[in-house]
Design a protein around this nucleic acid. Structure first.
Lengths: 235, 235
DNA sequence: AACTGTAAACCTGTATACCGGTTTTTGCAA
DNA sequence: TTGCAAAAACCGGTATACAGGTTTACAGTT
């Protein structure tokens, strides 16, 4: 059959396929260690092979999928090693970003950071009222959303798209590993919240050195959490 | 005509196309601000569109090419802004790497670093004998090769592939911008060489703090050079 | 039932066809 | 010669065809 569909000019299908497959990976819809077939996936999504193939290649280069030669494509199973690597880079880049953000301090950014801090606080309050031992469900989702936004804002304020793209890439892979990478008891959350608040204040004061210090502690704490959780998961 | 060529199992053509096109970009064979046609380039290289298309997309994602929608693909023309961004990230990541390399110090790495320092020194000596005002030609190429190897070794010693890939990506784009980004007079080169030697020694001594400091100075100096050169180029 | 050789199914890498849109060329009129 | 519109060439996005390798299924043998 000759191809009868029309075509549009920008790579809309490739882009959509990319977004959809990415979401499928992040949502855990695609089983790990099971081959992903370009053809089949394409049929499921209603695209031909080409856009799906391009999406898969893109995701593989971003590190969400692995292509084992003469075997197939799989969802990646991050190793503890890689998580450490990512956190090291985050530590280096985000401390730089925090310092730069402090130097460039803008009214709008300060306000938005403060809003994130407030949202995190609200999530923690609700969690305390719930009397549960660890945060979970809606509170946890809100907390994480605010947390992620907080870091994103600082990256944006630092005004370095290259750095931003690097961190986003890392974030995504951490996500696959499991976004529950925090000790979620009240005490620890309160400590984290405090550090976020301090960081926001440091940026507001344009105290670059302090901003760097706060970010350093924040990320190191996250790294410890993620690593200890990864280890317990393995066992 | 039906496809008559056989096919091999790993993406060899895509890979070769990638390497070839990349080399063409870096060697400046492809004129800037001229459309690159998948079809035509494919014909030149002897491949069909598919491998070339994949190579081009890959290079575009790596930032060597830009794809302007409904216009075409071009060799990127890095902006001063982007060069700054890359150097900021290099500063953050490579200082981290230097510190980590010092902590992990290995005999082999130390030796290889020392060898690079020697090679840089030889290039500088030859340059001095040549009596030219600025380094160029073969000496410059040798100097740069040793310099690049030096930084690569440290990244390797830091043992963080994620960080390594980031820096390589940045390097490549700087290269397009023009690898002559150093003040190439004797005095400046001698200063740079000294800093490299100090850094190598700091790593040998396992003095992480000093390694970080040396790397910091080194990259900041490079950044200043690159920026001033970029500005003069524009004018 | 376990083993193995073979055929069918399938999957990826590659080549190519087609479409709508954009750019360039061409050919004709002012 | 210049201006401009129609046509031709081209280009990228998409769909599909094909080849060779790999995996899976299965039938026949022990």
């Amino acid at each position: 059959m000759p191809p009868s569909h029309g075509s549009e000019s920008s790579p809309v299908l490739s882009q959509r396929a990319y977004e959809q497959v990415r979401a499928m990976v992040l949502d855990g819809v695609l089983p790990r260690d099971k081959r992903i077939s370009e053809t089949k996936l394409g049929k499921e999504l209603g695209y031909s092979r080409t856009p799906v193939r391009e999406a898969i290649q893109r995701l593989a280069r971003e590190g969400l999928l692995v292509q084992r030669p003469s075997s197939g494509t799989y969802v990646v199973q991050p190793k503890l090693r890689e998580i450490k690597d990512i956190y090291e880079v985050r530590l280096a880049v985000e401390t730089m970003a925090a310092s730069k953000a402090a130097k460039k301090r803008s009214e709008k950014c300060t306000k938005q950071l403060q809003a994130c801090v407030v949202r995190m606080n609200r999530a923690i309050h609700r969690f305390r009222k719930s009397q549960k031992p660890v945060m979970q469900g809606k509170e946890l989702a809100q907390y994480h959303a605010a947390d992620e936004k907080f870091h994103q804002l600082i990256l944006e304020a630092a005004d370095n798209p290259f750095a931003q793209s690097i961190i986003m890439q890392g974030h995504v892979k951490q996500f696959i590993f499991g976004h529950q990478s925090h000790h979620r008891n009240l005490h620890h959350l309160a400590w984290l919240w405090l550090k976020h608040a301090q960081l926001a204040r440091a940026i507001d004061r344009q105290d670059a050195a302090d901003a760097r210090r706060c970010m350093n502690r924040l990320i190191k704490a996250s790294m410890r959490d993620a690593i200890s959780q990864a280890k317990s998961k393995k066992a």
